[in-house]
Design a protein around this nucleic acid. Structure first.
Lengths: 327, 327
DNA sequence: TGTGTTATATATAACGTTTCACGAAGGAAA
DNA sequence: TTTCCTTCGTGAAACGTTATATATAACACA
């Protein structure tokens, strides 16, 4: 690290032969006499002056900085989410402080405390701690999970589940299976299952659900599938997985056992993850509007005054075929 | 956004009945009389005091903040890189300011200026502007590309190319093909080709190279391949692609034309991108040590005093089979 | 007991901004 | 002219820290 002493407003003021207050006004776009403004602008240009955001933040208590607390960027959903959040924040004149928690409760808590210490203007978080509790003096918007009474943004998981069931039935599936592996904490994403089951019941369809938490491995899924293959045919002909990753793995598992996808079994996942290499979905899927979720979260955070924000905002999802269904 | 007035050092001092300086010492771990320290700690705890990093940064001119300037997080290489950078920085007590440039020169320049305005302690950047020029008063470490005289971290691209060629030959390939599509700017990654060609020449092997820039589409590659398929057989039996993504696409293209991978043609990519769903490589590949690159970049940045840092640091790569070669 | 020497807490001056009260300058109305 | 407004630049105080100089207490030694 090198020392880095930039010119200050005082230098600009001296150079331009005006007072500090005048320079401040010019910098902040407050109207000021023509000849003064010109002199200040010239001096600013000449010295290469740049505002010191630390001094400004100290004085105004406004830092134009938002902390993004995320579990990991190894998963494309999080990576794209952070990408969209950061880009949109920048467009709105905000900076983003990235904090990776690695799914660790302790780190999550540390991040929240660190964020406050940095006097950020707000936090957008996707967390895994069951007991995270952040008082309302600080602005927080969460994604997919609830923390205290802070507003939460998610896709319409319940309807996403319904959509998957309806689509499978529409495509001719008679015996449906729902596979869920996820957070021990019940968040918005855990409504996919109820949505799916609801649609099945409404239609009077034959279905079965298996729920696992991320404490478990996925082995029970595959054991179940194995047990329900008779004479090279799976007993179920439509499967809804609560993530695209799981969808792809289930697909691979069945193919390896000679079951044809989508001829024998149709599979729908959830998320809408696009493969970086092929540009395609890994499986047919319910697509979450990631960019829209990011923008909604940012807007909610930035316009949050008092306690007007709704505790929950869920955005429309849509179905997209990805080769594992017969459409 | 809500107002957020936290307790200040003055409050702690009053509560503890000591002076400001004493509180400062306790906060910064400077030895202080036992009973004083206890009183201050009690007061800190009671009021829930947290240091204001903006005030501290203003005074010390040290912000413990590093800007990460990256093109996008849609590509897993960048996403994982940012993940590792951010985690390691946090471990070292630094925060990371994420800036997404979307491969746009203008945005890249804006990010550099913004970063300085935020008085960050340094910048880690992966950029695409040909004319980016950052004076040396600010600490910068780049990845894969050179900016002015700032140190650059990359994987050993030249040797990676050699490795790919050697591996293909070792696996019995007689007629090799190298496909490159990349940056118009010549960065470290552009040494993969020369490495590959060098190994081919050394071994006296038959090879052909095609170079495209990212101004082009990949169409010429596929046209070339098409033209060299005769009677369902490709004229080449070993292909090195300068990225895993390209490797996967070439693989798909050939398979669609009835050519068997790896029986008829063997393919090696570059990067070592692990698919999030399967946990496997998309193709056989030269693996870049992303975590190590991240840590090296951070260490270089944080220990940068004067101009000791080497202009280039390249880290060892290794080959990993991924199903598109006969090993 | 007085002096010199540490040790350690306090008071104060920065750091680079913004903001606000003040006053000077320039018109307009009488 | 004089008076009163209005406009607009100036100077100083403040934001929450750290760092430096100063003051105070404590102790040892002659």
């Amino acid at each position: 690290m090198k020392p880095c002493d930039a010119p200050t407003m005082k230098d600009v003021a001296r150079e331009a032969g005006v007072s500090l207050g005048t320079v401040s006004k010019v910098i902040n776009g407050i109207p000021v006499g023509e000849q003064y403004r010109k002199r200040v602008e010239a001096a600013t240009e000449k010295l290469g002056y740049q505002v010191n955001n630390y001094a400004r933040g100290l004085k105004t208590n406004k830092t134009y900085c938002v902390a993004l607390v995320m579990p990991s960027l190894h998963h494309p959903f999080f990576a794209v989410l952070v990408n969209e959040l950061s880009e949109y924040l920048m467009q709105q004149g905000y900076r983003s402080l990235l904090m990776i928690t690695n799914y660790d409760s302790l780190v999550e808590k540390k991040c929240f405390s660190l964020a406050q210490q940095n006097k950020i203007d707000g936090i957008i978080a996707l967390t895994y701690s069951p007991d995270l509790d952040v008082d309302e003096s600080i602005s927080v918007v969460t994604i997919d999970r609830h923390i205290s009474n802070h507003p939460c943004v998610s896709s319409d998981n319940f309807h996403g589940g319904e959509l998957a069931a309806e689509k499978l039935m529409e495509l001719g599936c008679k015996k449906l299976l729902f596979l869920h592996i996820g957070n021990v904490i019940v968040g918005e994403a855990e409504k996919r299952g109820p949505g799916f089951e609801n649609a099945c019941r409404t239609a009077g369809a034959d279905y079965h659900s298996i729920w696992l938490t991320d404490q478990d491995t996925e082995a029970p899924f595959f054991r179940f599938l194995e047990e329900h293959i008779h004479n090279g045919k799976l007993e179920y002909d439509g499967i809804f997985c609560n993530s695209d990753g799981l969808g792809v793995r289930v697909c691979e598992f069945l193919k390896a056992r000679g079951i044809r996808i989508p001829e024998d079994v149709q599979i729908i996942g959830y998320d809408g993850i696009v493969d970086y290499a092929t540009g395609r979905y890994g499986c047919s899927t319910i697509v979450q509007p990631i960019a829209e979720m990011a923008q909604t979260a940012v807007n909610l955070l930035l316009n949050q005054q008092g306690t007007l924000a709704p505790r929950n905002t869920s955005l429309a999802v849509h179905y997209a075929p990805g080769g594992t269904t017969r459409d």
